[in-house]
């Protein structure tokens, strides 16, 4: 499988997050969208999203490292753009 571009990854994420676990999110999702403050998700959702992405891309990804970094952040939030960059680095 060829490495997807940042734009392709953002499209994949937008599709997954737009209807995540049955929760509709109607606003536009872009690199500056905050995972927790804007999308209203929690760290448990990040665990589940990580699993969905691994299954979508068909490979293991070091989401544990991302989660641990999130645990060290004061605001415990993550930009969609940072997740795109993480995926681009590891796919």
């Amino acid at each position: 499988m060829s490495t997807p571009s940042g734009a392709e990854i953002l499209t994949d994420l937008t599709n997954l997050l737009g209807n995540f676990q049955g929760r509709e999110y109607s606003g536009a999702i872009g690199p500056e969208t905050r995972f927790f403050a804007d999308l209203g998700l929690a760290s448990i959702d990040a665990v589940v999203l990580g699993e969905m992405l691994q299954s979508h891309y068909g490979r293991d990804l070091p989401f544990g490292d991302l989660m641990a970094e999130l645990g060290r952040r004061a605001d415990r939030d993550l930009l969609v753009g940072e997740l795109v960059e993480f995926l681009r680095r590891h796919l």
Binding site: A42, S43, I44, A46, V47, F63, G64, D65, M67, A68, L70, G71
Partner: peptide, 13 residues
């Protein structure tokens, strides 16, 4: 809480 605490503190990993 929920099980994500064990990922955030790296216990799972």
């Amino acid at each position: 809480g929920d099980l994500s605490i064990w990922f955030l503190c790296r216990a799972m990993q």
